[in-house]
């Protein structure tokens, strides 16, 4: 019983630890003071107004959104065929290929970013949108692949065979049976890919400029020399967006991160 109580107390403290910075950021963004203060002194949404009227923030936000959308699109275009090939075909070097395609998950992003910068400078692929995009595609594709692969189960294969048996061609089978059944994997893979791209700093930082910046990199640069409430407001907005995203996933496909007993 004592052990149980201790576990409970420790768990609640840990949860508080997890909540604390989020609370501080959101709280700090509401302060009326010119400097960041928590607990906030007075309550105002002025800092949000400041942020939403600041063209650099708006531009960075748009860049990030377009970049994340494009990276997600290409990740699906690359990840889906790769997943089908890995799950449905046998070929030499399959293990090697899936290790290659999944490895950006564990490799230091800063190294991938550096590599792309050096390689890109030789090709003229630096500090522009395509340069940002290729890097992001490389790091987010594994998310699509990883969430898709478990969906190609033997049971799924039997369903595809049943469809062929009933007279559907390979393509019709893909459209009517495979695709609807892997849709949850596609959706969650796409969401993970989008978010990973949207919050990336390590890779983007090599290829951003004053004119072409993403939201996280811009925040990163600001935060290093000033801590003012507008940064907290931007941060709070991204927390809010993330929360909306999570609740959406939870409602759409169920946030199956901790299985029920």
């Amino acid at each position: 019983m004592a052990a149980r109580l201790a576990v409970r107390a420790l768990a609640l403290l840990t949860l508080a630890y997890l909540a604390l910075p989020l609370v501080v950021v959101i709280g700090g963004s509401l302060t009326e003071t010119k400097f960041l203060s928590f607990p906030p002194q007075g309550l105002t949404l002025d800092w949000y107004r400041v942020v939403l009227h600041d063209p650099t923030y708006v531009r960075s936000f748009l860049t990030s959104a377009v970049l994340a959308l494009a990276a997600t699109f290409f990740a699906l275009v690359i990840g889906l065929p790769a997943a089908i090939a890995i799950a449905r075909h046998s070929f030499r070097g399959k293990g090697l290929l899936s290790a290659l395609l999944l490895s950006p998950l564990v490799l230091p992003h800063i190294v991938i970013g550096a590599a792309l910068l050096q390689y890109g400078s030789a090709l003229g692929l630096v500090r522009n949108f395509p340069a940002l995009l290729v890097g992001h595609v490389v790091i987010v594709t594994p998310f699509v692949l990883r969430t898709l692969l478990p969906h190609f189960s033997p049971g799924q294969r039997a369903l595809e065979e049943a469809s062929r048996d009933l007279g559907a061609s390979g393509w019709t089978t893909f459209r009517l049976v495979t695709l609807p059944l892997i849709r949850p994997g596609l959706v969650s893979g796409a969401i993970f890919a989008f978010i990973t791209s949207f919050i990336n700093v390590e890779l983007s930082i090599f290829n951003t400029t004053a004119a072409l910046n993403t939201i996280p990199v811009q925040l990163f640069n600001y935060v290093q020399y000033s801590v003012d409430p507008s940064i907290a407001a931007v941060s709070a907005l991204t927390i809010l967006a993330a929360a909306v995203g999570i609740v959406l996933i939870d409602l759409l496909i169920g946030l199956d991160l901790l299985p029920d007993k």
Partner: peptide, 13 residues
Amino acid sequence: LNTVFQNYALFPH
């Protein structure tokens, strides 16, 4: 020809 599969393979969707 058609097949009746062992685990039926009914389309769940």
